[in-house]
Design a protein around this nucleic acid. Structure first.
Lengths: 156, 156
DNA sequence: TATTGTTATACTCTATAACTATA
DNA sequence: TATAGTTATAGAGTATAACAATA
C-alpha cells in the first residue's frame, strides 16, 4: 500500500523495506544456488542434530514446504536425510562437507546484505532501529493475533 | 526465516514485524468489509479525480489486480466507475457518500492499529524507528534492485 | 491414537496474454 | 503504434488431505 499522510505509515515502511530486503537477499543467495529457506535449514541443521519437524518449527515452515526444501538441499549435495537413532519415523538432516562450506558462504552473504543496509544509516539510527524492531517483534507484534485466516482454516 | 545469532537479524525482524502488522491490519479492516487495497484505493480516489491506472500506480498494483479491487468496491456500493471526460478509454473512480464514510472509518482503523503498535514502544524508540525506516525506505532500500524475478519474467 | 514424513491436490494470489476501445 | 481497461488463464507459493510407517 502506498503511504498515506494522516499518520506516519508504519505499514508502508515495514512492508516496503522488508520486501526490498527480501528481494535483495534472495538475489544474493541465488548466486550460490540457495534460497533463504535452504540457508536457514543448513545453518540450524549444522548447529546440532535436528529432524525435519524441528527444523520446520525453527524456520516457521509447513512440513510439506520442508520436504521440498530438503529435497533441494539433497539434490544440491548439501545435506542428506539420515534415520534418527531414537525414532524410526524421523529423519535427521545431516549437512555434508560441501553443505558446511556453502553455509559459511551463505552466512557471509546474509551478513553482508544486512551490513550494507544498516551501513547506509547513521550509527545512532542503526542501533535505534534494531532495538525498536526487537522490542516490537518480542512485544506487541510478537504474534499474528487471532487471524481471520487461521480461523477460516480451522473451520474448514 | 528464524533469527540467527551471527549478526542482528534485520531480515527476520523486518519480515516478522511487517507480517504480523499486516495480519493485524487485515483483520481490523475486515471488520468493516475492507481489504488493505480497498482502503488504499478509496483514500486516494477521494483526494482527487483519479483513473484506475493512476490508482494502480499509487498503490503499486497490477492493473488486473486493480480491476478486482474496484469490482469489490463497486459491489459494496463504495465507489463507481465513471467515464473520464477527457479520455474515453479511462475510468474515473468516484467514491460514493457511503464510500467516503467507510474510508473515514477505515482510516481511523489504520491509524489505531499503527498507534497501538507504536504506543508499545518507548517514545524515543518510536521516533527513532520511524526515522530509521524512512531513511532506509527512501535510501538504500528504496528499490528492489535488479531482481532475479523481474528478469525471469522479462525473459519468459 | 498420535506423530513423522511423503505425495497428491487444492487454493490463493498475482502476473501474463490476448482482446476491445480508444488515443 | 501505444494505452486503459477487461477477461481468461497460467504460474508461484503454500496449505490441506490422505497415506504409510512408527510411536
Amino acid at each position: 500500500m502506498a503511504p498515506n499522510r494522516t499518520s506516519p505509515d508504519l505499514s508502508y515502511l515495514l512492508d516496503h523495506t522488508s520486501h526490498v530486503l527480501r528481494t535483495r537477499m534472495a538475489a544474493a543467495l541465488a548466486e550460490i544456488g540457495l534460497t533463504a529457506r535452504m540457508h536457514c535449514v543448513l545453518v540450524h541443521a549444522i548447529e546440532e542434530e535436528r529432524t525435519q519437524a524441528q527444523l520446520a518449527e525453527i524456520g516457521d515452515m509447513d512440513k510439506t514446504t520442508m520436504v521440498v526444501t530438503v529435497d533441494a538441499l539433497d539434490e544440491a549435495g548439501l545435506a542428506e536425510r539420515r534415520p534418527s537413532s531414537t525414532d524410526r519415523r524421523a529423519r535427521i538432516i545431516a549437512v555434508t562437507e560441501k553443505g558446511v562450506e556453502v553455509a559459511r558462504q551463505s552466512q557471509e552473504i546474509v551478513d553482508r546484505v544486512h551490513a550494507e543496509a544498516l551501513g547506509s544509516l547513521a550509527v545512532e539510527d542503526r542501533d535505534a532501529l534494531l532495538s525498536a524492531l526487537t522490542a516490537l517483534a518480542t512485544g506487541h507484534l510478537a504474534q499474528p493475533a487471532e487471524s481471520q485466516a487461521r480461523r477460516a482454516r480451522q473451520r474448514s
